[in-house]
């Protein structure tokens, strides 16, 4: 175990199953949580597809299930509202109590949020890694 006050920030910019990026994000995030680090993930661009509820891959690493495990272990996962809205995930306004935009299609583990959710991660995370640059 390590100093639990340190936080790892991760941005995912690509959709799951189309590449290994989402798998890498989830494996690194879970390992970081197991080592005692805090984890903040931001789903951006096509990365927001990782939030889709009901993922059921037959021969692939289940990204949806991994995100749920990450949230259960204390990881914080947010996704970009503008990217989510464009892709049809947002079906309600901002819920102040829940501090997230409403979505019936997204995993409970993921909070749809403004881009400033990512800016806070950039500002506060001790280390930042990004996936999906090209």
């Amino acid at each position: 175990m390590v100093d639990g006050t340190k936080t790892l920030g991760i941005m995912l910019f690509t959709s799951p199953y189309g590449s290994q990026d989402a798998d890498h994000v989830c494996r690194i995030a879970e390992r970081a949580l197991d080592m005692g680090y805090g984890v903040h993930i931001f789903l951006y661009g096509d990365g927001v597809h990782a939030q889709l509820a009901g993922q059921d891959p037959k021969m692939f690493y289940n990204v949806g299930a991994a995100l749920e495990r990450i949230a259960e272990k204390g990881g914080v996962i947010k996704s970009c509202v503008r990217c989510s809205q464009a892709r049809g995930y947002v079906d309600g306004g901002y819920d102040e109590e829940e501090d997230r935009y409403r979505s019936s299609k997204s995993l409970d583990a993921v909070r749809i949020y403004s881009l400033y959710g990512f800016i806070d991660i950039i500002k506060d995370a001790d280390t930042l890694i990004t996936f999906g640059s090209s």
């Binding site: 881009l115 400033y116 800016i119 950039i122 090209s134």
Partner: peptide, 15 residues
């Protein structure tokens, strides 16, 4: 990638 990255740059500057 390009406009998404530039949005992040602008938002960081605004903070």
């Amino acid at each position: 990638h390009t406009f998404a990255g530039l949005y992040v740059a602008t938002a960081c500057l605004s903070k």
